[in-house]
């Protein structure tokens, strides 16, 4: 009962967060210098006054800013219309829909992988604290954490695609010999190994560090000393007690990351020529494609709000000590 009230309150709050964030972004991109019409013309020698006027009118950029803002808000929240992309002259919703599955395949899978691996390795390292394996794992995670995504992507590409020729270099499918049926999906999976690996390695150290540190902190708690004093087996202490107490921080992280995952992973997508939302957003920012920028950010804010609500619910299940509706 109180759970329902709590959740509906959260949803109402979330709605305001979405409206506020989209408003900020609307004014921010419109106040930023640059003009989408410049990108229609490419080289400035194409820019005639007629061309500028034509597109200004077509895109409604001749109206004052506040009027455009009200039109945009009413279109989005009353009619569910995200508008037309300037660059692609296609509905924004279609552009995002096309790319979303590809992006989610990349981001969700690597997030889940990084989460599982990170938690497992983190717990393992905390158990082997200051031993060789802990040192090695910490070292590797330190290196991975400080390696830029594009560098890691290119290194993996050079190693596994160019030299060992195990995986394809880039792209989503084999365009020279297109596959059909089941093999088509297998082909996509095959092409996704390296991008997923790259993103997993990028996300992994974060989970690893958080879990390792939380578990180490737990090891010093009184209840662990008590368990040890009772003579409980070390493996059992980890499985039963430390694991449950160290899992909450990485879950928060996981949910947060998942919220961003609809925005894609622009760098990984660019390196591997992967047609995802991240690249769409990046191109849109460069080309001042306002409707696309707003559309993607709207999606991101919705998904972050939604996931933070889900995270709240998950907490109450995982940790009965958290009372719903109470002060945290």
């Amino acid at each position: 009962m109180s759970l329902v009230r709590h959740t509906s309150k959260k949803i109402a709050q979330g709605f305001f967060v979405i409206i506020i964030s989209i408003s900020i972004i609307f004014f921010l991109i419109n106040l930023a210098p640059g003009d989408p019409i410049q990108f229609v013309a490419g080289d400035p020698i194409f820019l005639s006054k007629e061309l500028v006027d034509y597109y200004r009118k077509m895109w409604g950029l001749d109206k004052p800013l506040y009027e455009r803002f009200l039109i945009y808000l009413s279109n989005v929240f009353l009619r569910g219309d995200l508008g037309y992309s300037y660059r692609y002259s296609a509905p924004v919703i279609e552009l995002i829909k096309e790319r979303l599955p590809v992006t989610l395949l990349l981001t969700v899978v690597s997030n889940v992988l990084a989460f599982i691996l990170g938690v497992a390795l983190g717990l393992y390292a905390s158990r082997k604290y200051t031993k060789l394996s802990d040192n090695l794992l910490s070292l590797v995670s330190f290196i991975l954490n400080s390696t830029p995504t594009f560098l890691l992507g290119i290194v993996l590409m050079l190693a596994f695609s160019i030299h060992l020729k195990i995986f394809p270099v880039s792209g989503l499918i084999d365009v020279r010999n297109p596959k059909t049926g089941f093999m088509y999906y297998f082909d996509i999976l095959y092409h996704s190994v390296l991008p997923i690996a790259t993103l997993t390695f990028v996300l992994l150290p974060m989970y690893f560090k958080v879990v390792r540190d939380t578990a180490l902190q737990q090891l010093g708690e009184d209840y662990v000393i008590l368990c040890r004093a009772i003579g409980l087996d070390e493996g059992r202490i980890f499985k039963k007690h430390i694991f449950r107490n160290s899992i909450l921080p990485p879950i928060t992280l996981f949910m947060l990351q998942l919220g961003y995952s609809v925005a894609g992973a622009a760098i990984t997508e660019t390196v591997f020529g992967w047609p995802g939302v991240g690249r769409l957003l990046l191109d849109a920012i460069y080309q001042r494609d306002y409707p696309v920028i707003l559309g993607v950010y709207l999606l991101v804010s919705i998904s972050i709000v939604a996931l933070s609500i889900i995270a709240d619910l998950v907490y109450t299940i995982l940790d009965p000590r958290i009372k719903t509706g109470g002060a945290s």
Partner: peptide
């Protein structure tokens, strides 16, 4: 036409396929 916007990746893709 295979779309690879990243310069380094495009170069490697070109050499490979």
């Amino acid at each position: 036409f295979k779309i690879v916007p990243d310069a380094v990746a495009a170069e490697q893709t070109f050499i490979a396929e």
